[in-house]
Design a protein around this nucleic acid. Sequence first.
DNA 1: AGTATTACTTACTTTTGGGTAAGTGCTTGA
DNA 2: TCAAGCACTTACCCAAAAGTAAGTAATACT
Lengths: 121, 121
Amino acid sequence: MKNNLEIYADVDNCPIRNVLDRIGDKWSMLVLLVLNESDVLRFNEIHKVIGSISQKMLSTTLKNLEADGLIEREVYPVIPPKVEYRLTARAESLIPHLLSLAEWAKDNFIPIKQSRERFGS
Amino acid sequence: MKNNLEIYADVDNCPIRNVLDRIGDKWSMLVLLVLNESDVLRFNEIHKVIGSISQKMLSTTLKNLEADGLIEREVYPVIPPKVEYRLTARAESLIPHLLSLAEWAKDNFIPIKQSRERFGS
DNA sequence: AGTATTACTTACTTTTGGGTAAGTGCTTGA
DNA sequence: TCAAGCACTTACCCAAAAGTAAGTAATACT
């Protein structure tokens, strides 16, 4: 059993930790879900839809997702610039898991908030 | 469609953001998976199994999970102290989603690492 | 000549997460 | 008398995450 668990401890070689570090950051999952609903979006469109994200964070989040092969960036060499973002097949295979997690979150949101209140600070 | 997405933007009222902020931290998911495999564990047992977690972080992680109603803390009034932790039914309903996410992570770990290398920086 | 548009970057600051090391309280056993 | 065991807490520190505001490049439109 311990062997079974040891894998989790090492950040670099643990797939779950490695992937969750990315997905679990402040904006990545949100951007993936947004792109999933809209098929294809430009930088400023994502920015407007999310609203509260800064340009800087959107830029680095998109870069990270692209590095992981979860989104594709298509640049049109025009002026003013035009860049389109869409999910890759890899991301599409991830989406169902995110959605099922999101559904659990929705179903359990109220009771969890109640638990937190009961627990106090 | 915009209405569909607006919900994600507000941290306090978005279930996904709210739950993922907790699950997505450095240790919570790991502790849940560890408890899932072992049924019931004491503080120092979890500490030993994970190995790399500090007592301080284990303590706050357990406190947060308890506040969310995901683990139960049972205190035996003996000396030296004895405290047992186990998953609640709520956590058990979450576990399958975490495991399916973990499986996706395992399946996609290699290609993702390759993507990252190809991408450079 | 000046403004708008688009997709960013850069410099700077603040906030948060998390690590380290030591301390606490109480009892049992050597 | 003193170390050991357990489940923590506390004080302090550091690095990374994230926010703010401004700047950039190139062209078209007025």
